[in-house]
Amino acid sequence: MMRTLRQLRTLVAKDLRLEARTRQTVGLVVVMAILIVTVLGLGLGPQQLASGFAAPAVLWVAYLFAGVLCFEKTMACERHDGALAALLLAPVDRGVIYFAKLISNLILIAAIAIVVTPVALVLFGFDLSAAPGAFVVTVGVSMIGFAAIGTLFSAAVNSTGVRGGPLAMVIFPISLPLVLASTHMLIKCFRDGEPITQTALAILIAFALIYLVVSWLVFEMILAPGSE
């Protein structure tokens, strides 16, 4: 158990150190997400913006695109100079590699969300003061599910040398239930002023757990030797 934790910490630290030194992903993705928010804001026009309830949808679009870029980048660095082959040779369980990648992705995406969310909230006039905790929990849980799927498929798709489009095509449809459930919960909470119910939250947590377990199980098959 301690051993697994130590391995996890080493792997995550490696990814984060890489990001801290190159500073490629977060900067690029933050600017792109703000760009998406701006374009959507311009497209929707002042009438739709007045109510502020476009914000959850706009935020999700930004998160989805930012997430895909993020997953792609963290996996792409493994593809250079046979880094992945070396990683696979290390005496580490494949499941640990999966969780390490997942945690790095989550940290990166959280860093991006911390910058992008306030920008979108201000631009779209979305009032969080009623239930900031509910917002953070809902978005956080959905992010875990989304990153679980994203990490799995970034390992599968990226290894083919195909970038951008296909990864998004694979991740978006699969994570639609999460987006749907969480936007609904947010709209209900902020427009109708109803508190987020235990059942709704339980559904969201169940989604995230299912995605996590399935991806963790399947991940081993994707990285299995001889699959190339």
Partner: peptide, 27 residues
């Protein structure tokens, strides 16, 4: 082989996703 592998993984996850889609649209 890679295409078949990615497609198979996607096929499995997509089918398991169907009940989740069903649950989420019921909201």
């Amino acid at each position: 082989t890679r295409r078949a592998l990615v497609a198979a993984v996607y096929g499995v996850v997509a089918f398991l996703d169907v009940p989740l889609v069903w649950l989420s649209v019921r909201l």
